[in-house]
Each structure stands twice: as C-alpha cells, then as structure tokens.
C-alpha cells in the first residue's frame, strides 16, 4: 500500500507543479523535506523519550496490573467467546493496557499473541469471530492517556500549549471507540441472524431440491 501511495505522492506533486508552474519550488522541496525529517526526529526525541520513560515507571510499579484488573470485566463482556482466565483474555487485557499507556512497542506483540490465542479456540477458523473483530477494532481506536507523539510534534512546531489537546483527544478517541464497538455489535447481530437463516433455508432447499 505504501509503495503505491509514495509513488502517487511523487507523481502527483510533479504533475501538479507543472500545472501550477511551481516546478522549481518542487526541486528544492525534495531536499528540504529530507532535511526537515531529521530536524523533526531530533526535535521530537526528547518529549517522546520522556513519556516512554514515565510510562515504563507506570508499567514497572504495577499500575498496568491495576488498569488491567479494572478493564478485564469490561473486556470480558465485550468478548464473550473467551473465559476471563484464558490465555487469550490475559493477552487481550495486557494489549489494551499497553495501548492506553501509549506503549506502542509493547502493544503490537501482545496484540499478535492475543490474536493467536483467540484463533486457537475459533470455531470457524477461516474467518474471525465477533470477539476477534471487536479486539481488532479496539486496536484501531487510539484511546491513550498521553498522545506523546502528537505532543512531541506540537512542541517541535513551537506550540506554547502542546498539551492543550489532551481533553479533546480523550473525548474524540473515546467517542470514536464507542461508535466502533456499537457498530461492530450491531453488524455482528445482523450477520449472525443472516447466517442462522442461511443455514436453515439452505438446508431445507438442499433437501427439497
């Protein structure tokens, strides 16, 4: 996907600069962009390391376990195909907690582990069950305490209030998650019904035909 996207960016910008007569600006932009990327990385590094350090303290001091304990009843209700004490559920809780703390590097391996455990007990292994889908949707939402990359970018861009976005980010990401979960539940009920009906009529049709 990125192959196509990157190619598109370069071709479109070339064509567009021909159209707008900015071909000279474009040639300096490529070099300036590469330069800017390195400056950006350096400018972001401090804030990002600060927060990943703080979140590691949270993890080591057991705050993660407390969050996981609070979340586990909610997650169990959302993913009813797995027991609270199952390996799958433990990996799910650990993954969601890592996401909330913004530990991206820890969250992805835990998420993959959770998917593998869930797949082991999947009754129809060719397609994800409703719990697996819900889990992936949880991971496509971005509920986290500190959006540290964004804060770092804002700091690098000279913002006087890099953290002014915290409350809007919490509200928006939580709202998005709520809509995603609700949509998943409605769609799962619908596809479940369709499948049940399909089984019945399909069977009858076969027998009659």
């Amino acid at each position: 996907m990125l192959n196509v996207l990157w190619f598109g960016m370069i071709i479109v910008s070339f064509l567009c600069s021909l159209l707008t007569g900015r071909i000279e600006a474009l040639s300096s932009a490529a070099a300036a962009g590469a330069d800017k990327a390195i400056q950006l990385l350096i400018a972001m590094a401090g804030v990002m390391c600060l927060w990943s350090g703080m979140m590691r303290i949270a993890q080591q001091s057991g705050l993660t376990k407390i969050i996981a304990r609070v979340l586990s009843p909610v997650l169990c209700r959302l993913m009813p195909d797995y027991d609270r004490d199952s390996k799958a559920m433990q990996a799910v809780c650990a993954n969601v907690t890592a996401n909330i703390l913004g530990l991206g590097n820890a969250a992805t391996p835990l998420g993959i582990l959770a998917m593998k455990e869930m797949q082991k007990e999947n009754l129809h292994p060719a397609q994800p069950n409703r719990s697996m889908i819900l889990f992936v949707i949880l991971n496509t939402a971005s509920v986290q305490i500190i959006p540290s990359t964004i804060a770092a970018l804002r700091q690098a861009a000279g913002s006087t209030q890099p953290y002014a976005i915290l409350v809007p980010v919490w509200l928006s990401s939580f709202g998005a998650l709520a809509v995603g979960v609700t949509a998943a539940m409605c769609l799962s009920r619908r596809s479940g019904k369709q499948r049940a009906i399909g089984h019945k009529t399909g069977g009858r049709l076969l027998r009659n035909g």
Partner: peptide, 25 residues
C-alpha cells in the same frame, strides 16, 4: 498486521465498523 498474524483473509465487518469509528473520531 493482526489478521495477517493469524493468516485470516476474511475480515467480515471489521473495516466498515473501524472506518465508521475513524470518521466519528
């Protein structure tokens, strides 16, 4: 990444629900 890790090709209604969530966000 997540479906790829367990070799699932079908995603059923994952994409519509996730895209709806993104648009809401």
């Amino acid at each position: 990444v997540y479906y790829g890790a367990v070799g699932l090709k079908k995603t059923r209604y994952t994409i519509p629900a996730a895209v709806l969530a993104d648009m809401t966000g």
